[in-house]
Design a binder for these strands. Structure first.
Lengths: 121, 121
DNA sequence: ATATTTTACTTGCAAAATAAAAGTAAAACG
DNA sequence: CGTTTTACTTTTATTTTGCAAGTAAAATAT
């Protein structure tokens, strides 16, 4: 995978490379949801921002390709799939924390009402 | 300004609000350049990612509106303008640091060759 | 076992954003 | 004063996004 990316990269700058993956208005919201313990397609759809379903499907596919998330059965018996963060995805936590902090401090009317299900990571 | 934003906000989540401002492939690269001490239009154009000039003009305008940057004469005698980060913009430093760290750690072939001019803030 | 509902998408299309190229006016310079 | 540089704007083509509707498999209810 790294090969394909490197040819299309705008520059070797880690900021630009990260933005090539996460730099849009939706991807990090999905990551946020995953960090809040959400894992199902419908849960991402249910978030208050209202991501369009085609965009969600495309973003999940991209996150899978970059191995930021993984897809696995909800339970061993089920055929329904759930999404979870990989170590690479979990490593985005400090980034999300800083985005949250900046938003809370500098944008009026923002509120952190992120109630997590699990507190690990 | 906060009034106008609040009506168009997707949600009060600080992450989504921050992404409404910074969530694209170019804005944070301009912020990066500013943090590296670059301040002129042509310097932003000269960055290796090659931002289209119409996009750059639009992004600078938006960052001015959100008071993340400010525009001032290069020197008291000059009519040429330079852009600089405001306190709100400088507060994005930890976010940029985390983006950089994640890119360096998880994306192969990225390299931090950010040579700063000034080391303040 | 079958019907109904839910889930996890895909498809089609209009609207908006982006990218590439060329053009332009003011400022700076020789 | 003429030329070059700078900081944009404009135009057009391409891509992405957003919205609505449709669909097949899985789960649930009957």
């Amino acid at each position: 995978m790294a090969k394909d990316e490197s040819v299309t990269r705008r520059s070797p700058c880690p900021v630009s490379c990260t933005l090539d993956i996460l730099g849009d208005r939706w991807t990090l919201l999905v990551i946020r949801d995953l960090m809040l313990g959400r894992s199902r397609y419908k849960e991402f759809c249910a978030s208050p921002e209202g991501i369009p379903t085609n965009i969600l499907a495309e973003r999940l596919e991209r996150l899978l390709q970059y191995e930021i998330i993984e897809k696995a059965p909800v339970s061993p018996e089920s055929k329904r799939m759930a999404y979870h963060l990989t170590p690479k995805g979990k490593a985005l936590k400090p980034l999300l924390v800083e985005i949250t902090k900046w938003g809370l401090q500098w944008e009026e009317g923002t509120e952190a009402r992120m109630q997590k299900k699990n507190t690990d990571t």
